[in-house]
Structures are given as structure tokens and as C-alpha cells.
Simulated assay, not measured.
Amino acid sequence: MTTTDTSSRKETTLPPHADREELASAKLWAVYISEAEKYDKALVESWKADMEGLLIFAGLFSASLTAFLLESYRSLIPDQGAITIAILAQISRQLDPDSDTKSGAIIGSSFTPSTASLTCNTLWFLSLGLSLSCALIATLVEQWARNFIQRTEMRPSPVIRARIFSYLYFGIQRFEMHTVVEFIPFLLHLSLLFFFGGLVAFLLPP
């Protein structure tokens, strides 16, 4: 009997349960990957859709709020036209020989904005800051979701894919992505609350 015959006989006499264990392991990983892929993709796709809607709303809201701010910001600075008219009127009185106000001082810049104007602009600037923060965080979450989906669509061996899904899932838990995603609408609602508070102050009579 030759050495080749002996080695071939050893190969053919491998325990049959090894193939069964390998096949069962492959099936187990396939089931895990299938379920993890369904759960993770459904979760991330829903987050991505929510972020897209929040981005659209935050963009439109910020643009509208900026228009209000451009109008309300004028109440924080003195009216240059009114100051010019007052100065010209005072100069005219000083040049009038019959006037008794020759020694009067030219009007200074003693302008003080009203409390309603300060309140309105403060609330609206806070609202704009929160709205832009929502847009920034939503953009980062959307980019993360896109990267997450790309990672899960990789096609290495089943064991490596299972490790990738497990790593990404524990990453979601570690960085508390659920809390971050739920916190974005809260910031947007707070921004709207500040806007309506500033709108009430803006509509108050001077």
C-alpha cells in the first residue's frame, strides 16, 4: 500500500458530522443576517425619511423666519431718516433770528429700543439658531444613515457580515441614536414656540 492510498483513505474517512455542523452554522448565520438586515434597514430607512422631511421643513421655516428678522431688526437701531429730519429742523431753528433756541444742542444718538422689540428679536434669533441646529443634526443623521446602508450591503462571508451587523447595532446603542433622532423634532418644536412668542411681542402696540 502506497502513501498516496493511505492519505486518500484518511480524507474519505473524515467524520460526517463536520459537514453537518458547517452546514448548520451557515444556515444559522444566514437566518441571523436576514433578520438583522430587515430590522436595521427598516429602522434606518425610516430615520432617513424623517430627516428628509425635517430638512425640508427646517429650510422653509428658516427662510420665512429670516424675512421676519429683517423687518424686526430695524426696531433695534435708530431711524436715520427721522434723525436727519430732526437735526435739520433744529439747525433751521438755530438759524432763525426770531427763535429762542439758538443755544440748543443738536440731537444726540440717545436711542433705546423698546422692551417688546428686544423680546421679539431675542426669541426670533433663538428660534433661528435652533432651526439651523435641527437642519445640521438632521443632515448628519442622514449622512450616517446613508453610510450605514452602504456598510450593510457589503457581500463578504456570512460570518463577517454577521459581525458587521452586530457592530453597527451596538454602535446605535452606544451612541444613543434613538435619542438623537427623537431630540431633533423637540428642538424644532421649541424653535416654533420661540417664533410664536416673538410674533406676539412683534404685534404688540408700541
Rank of each mutant, 00 (worst) to 15 (best):
Y169A: 06
R146H: 07
G108T: 05
L118I: 09
A105E: 12
T122K: 05
I91R: 15
R146A: 12
E142S: 15
L130D: 07
Q80G: 04
T115V: 13
R174E: 01
L118D: 01
G81R: 11
V180Y: 00
I106F: 04
I87P: 00
G108R: 07
L95Y: 06
E153R: 10
I164Q: 00
C120S: 15
F125K: 03
I164M: 03
G171Y: 09
Q150A: 13
D100E: 11
I172K: 06
D100K: 12
L130W: 04
T112F: 04
I164G: 00
G81W: 07
L123R: 08
T115L: 11
A116T: 05
S133C: 13
L140W: 10
T101H: 13
A82D: 14
M154W: 05
D98H: 14
R151G: 02
P156T: 11
W144F: 15
T152E: 10
E142H: 15
R155H: 13
A105V: 11
T122E: 08
I172S: 02
A138C: 09
F111V: 07
R161V: 05
S157P: 01
I149T: 11
F170T: 08
Q150W: 15
I160R: 15
A116V: 02
S103P: 01
S99Q: 03
L130C: 05
D96M: 03
E176G: 03
K102P: 00
D96C: 08
Y167Q: 15
V159I: 05
I137L: 15
S109L: 14
M177K: 03
I107A: 05
L136R: 13
V180N: 00
G81H: 12
A89V: 08
E142M: 14
S114C: 01
P156D: 06
D96N: 15
V159T: 02
I184V: 12
A116C: 05
V141F: 07
S127T: 03
F125I: 15
I160E: 10
E182K: 08
G81F: 12
D96T: 02
V180P: 01
I106E: 04
R151F: 07
E153A: 02
A135G: 15
P97C: 05
F170W: 07
D100H: 07
T179K: 10
T119H: 05
I85E: 10
A116M: 04
I107R: 10
I137Y: 14
F175G: 00
A135E: 07
S117D: 13
P185M: 12
T119N: 10
H178D: 13
W144V: 01
P158Y: 07
A105S: 14
G104Y: 14
I160H: 08
R146N: 13
M177T: 11
Q90S: 06
D98Q: 14
M177E: 01
A145W: 04
F111K: 06
S131H: 04
D96K: 02
L168M: 12
N121K: 10
S103L: 13
A162F: 09
L132M: 08
S157K: 06
T119K: 11
M154P: 01
L130T: 07
S117H: 06
I160T: 14
P97K: 04
L123H: 03
G108M: 03
S99Y: 06
E176P: 00
C134S: 10
P97A: 03
L168S: 03
